[in-house]
Design a protein around this nucleic acid. Structure first.
Lengths: 332, 332
DNA sequence: AATGTTTCCGCAAACGTTTGCGGTATTAAA
DNA sequence: TTTAATACCGCAAACGTTTGCGGAAACATT
């Protein structure tokens, strides 16, 4: 078990003091050019790298970001994480991933551990049951910036980066109006998700305000399988009629698509299909599904920006909405 | 900026020494029950948690695993990471994710940083260009266990956890034989990937040994788009004939499926489709695609097991192959 | 009463840094 | 030649733990 190079070893080999070596390495003006040269050369040779734990213990600052999500089996969060990781790497930060399993208890433990690790910052999508803001306030007291994303709390004065749910829903609704179809099957997620509510309300309002002949049927599914079953059982209602299915999320879309294929229907001939999605699933089909894009990747970039501003000091709370754009496949 | 509780503070409040507090908290036999009680109570009250940096500095051991992958936009790695994270959490380890971008330089930096952080262990899928084993040997010298997974080096004496490429390929080949179809289109990845070679060889050998009337056409695609184009242009060759398409990976499958849908064909009527996959993509279609499963999730469990054995001391090198199983959809 | 055992606890060093402060040469100014 | 300024550098404390060792009581044994 060999040891890593330390300041002490370099100092001994060069008959210098530890402090001189430390200063030489960070180009401190007190140190002569000659000494600096000797030190950096030996440091290179020995592959010296400061021990992060010692540095942290001394300076109270790590170079790590934490990303906390309810679940890891989710495209959106994956894109988000990828996005953060890309940015972080350029500045030498590393990214630690935590999964709360949608359990507020676990979430609290994670936050506590982040506090004790003194992470540089936290990106978090909270659980659906997170009520207590106290752990977050405590982080604030300790000077650890928190950026909420996607699933954000009601609480006002904090930094939130959200998908523009209404915007996405209205983009989809408008596209449906454009197609001129009056029979619409809207498949939404469970109502305990905040996004369900906002997407649903906007979707309904845009459709109904524009055309009062719209025949809209709204159903809720909380899994892909459920969406599949629901679609299967509802498709017969639209027999021979021209109709459109709107899927609120990737999960629902994937269930619905199976049902559509199973019934031997194909878009845009037999029906129209449109979704709100990150983009991965819609591109698997031919024709590609038209969707309003909610990009985890974009959200990541925005969140990272905000984080950097917080770290730099500009810390007033702010809510940023990532407006989505319509990506046209051939399914409408 | 409030401070976290420390041993020192607890000690002062209780007029004890720091060492006594430390020992009381870890249930050391030297400390009386009475003292232990007082200490733990105050510690709870103050929400004391040991400073991980101080602990690490002192003990030379962190509670962190590193997972290093070439890319994060890949189901397989995501399942793997999820799997590791699930296990790690139960023992209070955290998981740090690093992305090498398939660049050996970046990979080396990551490894160096892991060494200096003294991570408890490293799970790594190496880049396609990783030749130099020296950084890994150095980790070994420092007592940091490395588990290679999926993309592993040629080097013999190290711990490798791999997908059973031959096995998966032969499962698929056998299923094709079972169907009795003699026209086979095999779409494989680029030949610079090691998995391509092993899957291809086994696939060919199983097919040709069993039936010398097999008309096998092998092509290579290095992206989903390419697979789509290739499939589109080759399908006409099989006009009216009964044929099977084999897709070596998820990426290829997704391209191929688009082409198949575009041509208006459907399995198993017009053709057979079979793939090697993690399982996510095949389940999006109806009928679900039959596939030989290579599970990132399973691989994660195996890798974690191996890691724990290494940490516990049983450190002889070993190569573990995760044999895959056939998951029957309706596409054959 | 002297010695041997327990039981419980504190001292102090160490892990590898960072940094305020002070100190010694060297050079410039008086 | 003395004094003041400058350029370099080292001392030592601190960050929060862990742990070997030693020490003082309290008790049991001759």
């Amino acid at each position: 078990m060999r040891q890593n190079a330390t300041l002490k070893k370099i100092a001994e080999r060069l008959s210098l003091s530890i402090s001189t070596v430390s200063r030489a390495l960070k180009d401190h003006p007190d140190i002569s050019a000659e000494t600096k040269k000797k030190v950096t050369e030996l440091a290179d040779l020995l592959e010296y790298d400061p021990n992060p734990y010692a540095v942290n213990l001394r300076t109270h600052s790590s170079k790590e970001f934490a990303v906390v999500v309810p679940s890891l089996s989710n495209f959106f969060y994956h894109s988000f994480i990828r996005s953060i990781e890309e940015e972080a790497q350029t500045l030498g930060y590393s990214v630690i991933i935590y999964r709360s399993a949608n359990d507020p208890k676990i979430e609290q433990n994670i936050l506590k551990s982040c506090r004790h690790k003194r992470v540089s910052g936290i990106f978090i999508a909270i659980t659906t049951e997170t009520m207590d803001m106290e752990p977050f306030l405590k982080l604030d007291v300790h000077g650890i910036p928190v950026i909420f994303f996607d699933k954000v709390p009601q609480y006002e004065s904090c930094n939130k980066i959200c998908v523009g749910d209404d915007h996405a829903a209205s983009l989809a609704a408008e596209e449906i109006l454009k197609r001129g179809t009056e029979n619409v099957l809207g498949i939404f997620g469970h109502l305990n998700m905040s996004i369900t509510k906002s997407r649903l309300e906007k979707f309904i309002s845009v459709l109904s305000q524009a055309n009062d002949h719209i025949n809209l049927n709204v159903v809720h599914a909380s899994s892909a399988d459920e969406a599949e079953q629901l679609t299967l059982s509802l498709i017969p209602n639209y027999k021979k009629k021209n109709f459109v299915i709107f899927c609120m999320s990737d999960e629902i879309l994937s269930g619905t698509m199976k049902a559509v294929q199973r019934k031997g229907l194909s878009a845009p001939k037999d029906l129209g299909i449109i979704a709100i999605s990150d983009g991965m699933i819609p591109k698997l089909f031919y024709p590609e599904i038209t969707y309003a894009e909610t990009s985890g990747y974009n959200l990541g970039k925005l969140a990272y920006d905000r984080m950097m501003k917080c770290i730099a000091g500009s810390s007033f709370a702010q809510t940023i909405i990532d407006e989505s754009k319509l990506v046209t496949g051939g399914s409408m």
